[in-house]
Amino acid sequence: MRSTVLCVDSSQLLKGVLDLAVLAVLAERDSYGYDVVRRLREAGLEDVGDASVYGTLRRLFKAGALTSYVVASDEGPHRKYYGLNDVGRSLLQTSAKTWTSFAATMNDLLKEVDPG
C-alpha cells in the first residue's frame, strides 16, 4: 500500500494565500499587474508566477473586490491600475484575520520543532 506524503513547499502554500498577498499589496497603494508581481517578489515571494498574479487580479476584479482605471503613459503601454474598494478592503480584513489565527496555530504546533 502506497500513500503520498506531501512535502510542503512555498509555491504550494502560496496558492492558498495569493489572494491575501495581492490584496495586501494593493492596500498599500494602487498598482498595475506587473508592478504587483514585482512588489510581491521584492517582498520575498520569489516563486510567484506572473500568470497567477494576473489571473488573481482579474478574478478579484470580476468578484467586485477591486476597482480599476487605465493610466496612459507616453513611453510604453497603457497601464491598468487596480485598487481596493470597500468589498476588497473587507475581504482583506477577514482574510487577514483568518490568516493570523491560522499562522498562530501553526506556530504553536511547531513550537517544539527545531527547523535546524
Partner: peptide
C-alpha cells in the same frame, strides 16, 4: 474578462 488587458500586461513584462 480574463484576457482583457493581457496584451498590455505582456508588453510591460
Amino acid at each position: 474578462a480574463l484576457l482583457e488587458d493581457l496584451d498590455e500586461h505582456l508588453a510591460e513584462v
